[in-house]
Design a binder for these strands. Structure first.
Ligand SMILES: [Mn+2]
Ligand SMILES: [Mn+2]
Ligand SMILES: [Mn+2]
Ligand SMILES: [Mn+2]
Lengths: 159, 159
DNA sequence: AATGAAATTTACCCATGGCTAACTTATTTA
DNA sequence: TAAATAAGTTAGCCATGGGTAAATTTCATT
């Protein structure tokens, strides 16, 4: 019956295999930017993530060490097979969460921000629950409508 | 139409007024532990959060600087009025999220962990949405039952 | 009151992920 | 092709929040 609390930092420490939250953001973005040409560059990446180029360089070197991307000094950034797969899953996770929040009534302007934060904190299990919720709402449009009008009703209360 | 992405670290940077994720965890726990006697101590706090005493000391000094708690070297830790209020709200937030996850079908063993992570990442707005969901489910026990059996059905698929 | 044990602090150390300034390499352009 | 510009890297800094080892203070016991 003992609760076992830890601090946020402790929970967010990367396991041996897994990536840190920031590594995930970079990999996710590299995946997005590689969509067009099959590669991206430090400048494009740093702009997309609103960090300075040296920060991007450092992280890219790390991801390269981990064999998730192919990169050599001054060159282009390309995903390795493992990185591509991981990136794909990160995007999927991102989209499930964004979808989920949208269904819940989180306003459009907040969805990206909230998703960008939450995506790094939820377990596989929880992701499944989010996904189940999406499916449930898709399979029950009547309930979905009822829910939408319910929260519409609440909005006015809060303004 | 421009998406504006930032890295996790950037989103999690504390605003001038607000607390970091770890500060929130400490304050929340100080609030819990103060329940019995109106105070707590470094040892109790560090044990409760699974950190070493020096880490607790450091954070307690910080919170004391911010006038959220009253503390002097080797003494007891007591909440200041502002800290008490904040702590109360942190606990409320924690409970809303735990409730929300529970309704969604996140297994009991995961609820604490998931809550401890998610609580630091959601906006006021999103909290309202979580809360609306709870209310909706409370007001519609029929739908709630339907949802529970829906996810029960899904469980078997995944094992 | 003296001593030993427990609680707490201090002084450092480490890792992460930002940043700026200065330097180097690559690419344009005159 | 030489000079100017753009792109990228390196070195070194900062803040956060952990940790250990050693010193200090408090408390309990004799
Ligand atoms: Mn993110
Ligand atoms: Mn994302
Ligand atoms: Mn927490
Ligand atoms: Mn909590």
């Amino acid at each position: 019956m003992e609760k076992d609390f830890y601090t946020f930092s402790e929970y967010m420490k990367k396991e041996d295999d897994s990536l840190t939250a920031s590594m995930e953001d970079y990999l996710e973005m590299i995946y997005r930017l590689s969509g067009r040409n099959g590669f991206t560059r430090i400048n494009e990446l740093s702009a997309a993530l609103n960090v300075q180029p040296p920060s991007a360089t450092k992280m890219v070197q790390k991801l390269s060490e981990l064999k998730l991307i192919k990169y050599e000094k001054y060159g282009v950034i390309m995903l390795e097979e493992e990185g591509r797969l991981l990136g794909e899953n990160l995007i999927k996770r991102h989209n499930v969460i964004a979808n989920f929040l949208s269904l819940l009534g989180v306003p459009d302007e907040e969805i990206l921000t909230e998703t960008e934060k939450i995506e790094h904190t939820v377990s596989e299990q929880t992701m499944k629950c989010f996904n189940d919720f999406i499916c449930f709402m898709n399979n029950n449009p009547d309930i979905r409508k009822k829910y939408i009008s319910y929260i519409e009703g609440h909005k006015s209360n809060l303004l």
